[in-house]
Simulated assay, not measured.
Amino acid sequence: MNVSACMSAPAVSVTPTTTVGEAARQMAVHGVGCLAVTEGGALRGIVTDRDIAVRAVAPGLDRDDPVLQVMTTPAVAVGVHDDIHTAYRTFRTSGVRRLPVLDGHRVVGVLTVDDLLMDVFRRVADLLGPVAWSVLEMPPGPADEIGPGARGGGRSPSASRGS
């Protein structure tokens, strides 16, 4: 599976001269925790909510200062056609939580650790779903074999589904 299957697209981007205040506003408007910093269509860096808190607010920078002063550069990125396992390795070795996704030099999306967690949850659900339903459809065993109340207080699975 390619990175493009899990990434959020399109990426929200700003220029290096965008103010810290405007970058924070863009994050709030778009509901994102990072912005790609681009110039002439090329990735220059990334600015995260943490960058703003730690590198701008904490040291007392002005909200009118450019994100160039607080962005992370160079940004660690992955390619849109990279295998998802490449992204897992990149997260593990770089320690970042967000990766801009590039198609050539153009930013086309962002992949986050949360995106990969959702992929893992979907895969586990696909794997365990049929097993879970087969267990739920089995009648409960005798209480003396498994102990009193071990299966939901003696209620059958079909009775607990409606409650």
Rank of each mutant, 00 (worst) to 15 (best):
A77V: 11
A77G: 14
V78N: 10
V78P: 07
G79H: 02
G79R: 07
G79T: 13
V80A: 02
D82V: 09
I84A: 00
T86W: 12
T86S: 01
T86C: 10
T86L: 10
A87F: 08
Y88H: 03
Y88P: 14
Y88R: 07
R89A: 13
T90S: 08
T90I: 10
F91D: 02
F91A: 03
R92D: 11
T93R: 15
G95V: 15
G95R: 15
G95L: 14
R98G: 03
P100H: 04
V101N: 01
V101L: 02
L102Y: 04
D103T: 12
G104N: 03
H105M: 06
H105I: 00
R106C: 01
V107A: 02
V108G: 01
L111V: 05
T112A: 04
V113L: 14
D114K: 15
D114I: 09
D114P: 15
L116F: 12
L117R: 12
L117A: 13
L117F: 15
M118S: 10
M118P: 03
F121A: 15
A125W: 01
A125Q: 09
A125I: 05
D126H: 14
D126K: 05
L127V: 07
L128Q: 11
P130I: 13
P130D: 11
V131W: 15
V131M: 10
A132V: 15
A132T: 14
